[in-house]
Design a binder for these strands. Structure first.
Lengths: 156, 156
DNA sequence: ATGCACAACGCGGAATTTGCGCGCAAGCGC
DNA sequence: GCGCTTGCGCGCAAATTCCGCGTTGTGCAT
């Protein structure tokens, strides 16, 4: 289905993961390929889902959500499709950036942005009330975002 | 410095946060603005840093890093610039996607991608050896990424 | 095994099309 | 009336498509 990436693909991904608006010609110069070849490969990787999205990263403070919280949640493990239901629900919650289903003392870890603690409180209240399978929420307040990003290494 | 966003700006950000390759004309149609106006606003928001980056999101599995870990770390709190040093170091570590400095039972929370547990072990070993101020690491293995993204709500 | 013909693939470059980036005059709000 | 921002038009840069070529790999006959 999706055959392995060659070195050119990896180099292209390394670049567009940092700046996806770069001109194909500039990319081609960096990696030793023509502009049309770069565009062909980009198109292919987009179609195959290797590049799943191309997104703008917006400053949290300017957007009015200066605060970040990390919420660890306990869920009913037995009920497996509780997780599926939670997934569809959480997809629509814009303040919940990321959710991971994990091993350990909590079952779910969520990265949540909010305007202030009051709004965060409202969000957690909604999580609890609209998802009875969530038993408890442990909150960590983020004092500083040391590093942010979605970069994935491609070089083996 | 950076005056507040109006409704047009917010609508543009909502769109480009999901797809930053969309044509300005298409964006303009959605929000009721001409293409050139959209481009002007995008340029301004890029220059002001409201849009801090535009990046391609790459599939983790295809990139050869199918596993994700959430690492909670304990650090020497007294030494404040220990955090600054850690920041500069961690910026260069491609496998460490995100790092948050938090309140609670741990001081730092990191999202880390790896090929397998063996590679993750190497990464944590490097963290410990190259950052003596890190005292201990608590690892949570991610069984499933329920939601991923960097979306920030802009509508108040 | 060796040599050859041929199909498949991906490249670079040219031609075409598309979208961007400016200047400008008009319109809206303060 | 004075900003500021919009919409429009034009020139140009970039993306897309098309085409010819070289390389690779496969099958077949020698």
């Amino acid at each position: 289905m999706t055959e392995p990436l060659d070195q050119f693909d990896r180099n292209i991904l390394d670049i567009v993961q940092r700046d996806c608006q770069m001109k194909a010609e500039a990319v081609g110069e960096m990696i030793g390929l023509s502009a049309s070849a770069v565009q062909r490969r980009l198109k292919r990787m987009r179609e195959e889902g290797i590049i799943s999205a191309e997104i703008a990263v917006v400053d949290r403070k300017v957007a009015g959500n200066p605060m970040t919280f990390i919420a660890g949640m306990e869920i009913e493990r037995e009920n497996y499709d509780a997780l599926a239901k939670f997934r569809t629900w959480v997809d629509k919650q814009d303040h919940i950036q990321q959710v991971y289903y994990v091993t350990g003392s909590v079952d779910l870890v969520a990265i949540i942005t909010a305007q202030d603690v009051g709004q965060y409180d409202e969000i957690t209240a909604q999580i609890m009330s609209q998802n009875p399978q969530i038993k408890r929420i442990h909150t960590n307040v983020v004092l500083k975002s040391v590093k942010l990003g979605m970069f994935v290494p491609t070089q083996s």
